[in-house]
Simulated scan of single mutants.
Amino acid sequence: MNTVDHVGAFDRPFSPAAGYGRGFALMRDAAGDAWRRYTRHAFVEGLKDGTLPRETFLHYLRQDYVFLIHFSRAWALAVVKSETHAEMLTAVGTVNALVAEEMQLHVGICEAAGISQEDLFATPERAENLAYTRFVLEAGYSGDLLDLLAALAPCVLGYGEIGVRLGAESGSDTYRGWINTYAGEEYQAACRAVGGLLDSALTRRLGADFVASPRWERLCRTFRTATELEVNFWQMGLTP
């Protein structure tokens, strides 16, 4: 069962939304309750108040490391799907942030817990993990950059939103390092860059009034499906 706390707080404006761009804000709204179930899942609230068991957190980190391997490949595919140098630069920067920074966060925490990088890399992939990563890759293989970004955005920007909220609300130091990573300016700058990429890609391919395009509804469905897969990923984290 997915637990959602602080429902009323979700209804208040999300402060970084403008910085993440118009396209994301509209897709987030279109995702409806799925977005709340993702960003306020019981796993997330356990990180906030420090009640999430350490072994559960490590189980999640191992799966998330495997996820990031495929997610990095998907962002590399975004380079292939790009039509401008600016699009390529943002995609390359995101790949670098994932491989050189975010994955290293996982390595450091796991090594401190006695899990070597070799063991981390060899983690068997759970079905929920496989379903999510292959959905994202397929969106890129079969579509263009917009289809791929709609599948990628919930993870990147959802973690940014979660990080900001937990950074402001958490009164526990148990998972402070994880929270600070996603609340920090470096990750938030990456979120703004991805939000900007989404907006510019929408305008370039669909026009300034991109919500009037026949493709808009399909892109929102992709975004929502990826959001639902994020909910499943958190739930997997709770069930080692």
Rank of each mutant, 00 (worst) to 15 (best):
M1C: 09
V7S: 06
F10Y: 03
D11C: 01
R12S: 07
R12G: 00
P13T: 11
P13V: 02
S15I: 08
P16W: 07
Y20V: 08
M27L: 14
M27C: 06
R28C: 06
R28Q: 13
D29V: 05
D29I: 01
A30L: 07
A31R: 13
Y38W: 13
A42S: 11
E45A: 08
R54E: 09
R54N: 02
E55A: 12
H59V: 02
R62I: 07
R62Y: 11
D64W: 11
Y65A: 06
Y65K: 07
V66L: 13
V66D: 00
F67P: 00
L68M: 11
H70Y: 09
W75I: 06
W75G: 00
L77E: 14
L77D: 12
L77S: 08
E83Q: 05
T84N: 13
T90S: 07
A91H: 15
G93R: 11
A97F: 11
A97M: 05
V99T: 05
A100C: 04
E101R: 11
E101A: 03
E102V: 01
H106V: 00
I109R: 00
I115A: 01
Q117S: 15
D119Q: 11
L120G: 10
L120F: 04
L120E: 09
T123V: 15
E125P: 03
R134N: 11
E138Q: 11
A139Q: 04
Y141Q: 15
A153I: 04
C155D: 10
V156A: 12
L157E: 03
L157M: 12
E161H: 13
G163E: 04
G163D: 01
L166N: 02
S170Y: 02
S172N: 06
I179P: 01
I179T: 15
Y182A: 01
E185S: 15
E186R: 10
E186K: 14
E186W: 08
E186Q: 11
Y187I: 01
V194F: 13
G196K: 01
D199I: 14
L202C: 12
T203M: 08
R204P: 06
R204K: 13
R205V: 12
G207S: 07
D209N: 10
F210C: 04
V211G: 12
S213D: 00
P214D: 10
R215H: 10
E217K: 14
E217W: 10
R218Y: 12
L219T: 03
F223T: 01
A226Q: 03
T227P: 01
N232I: 03
M236G: 10
G237D: 03
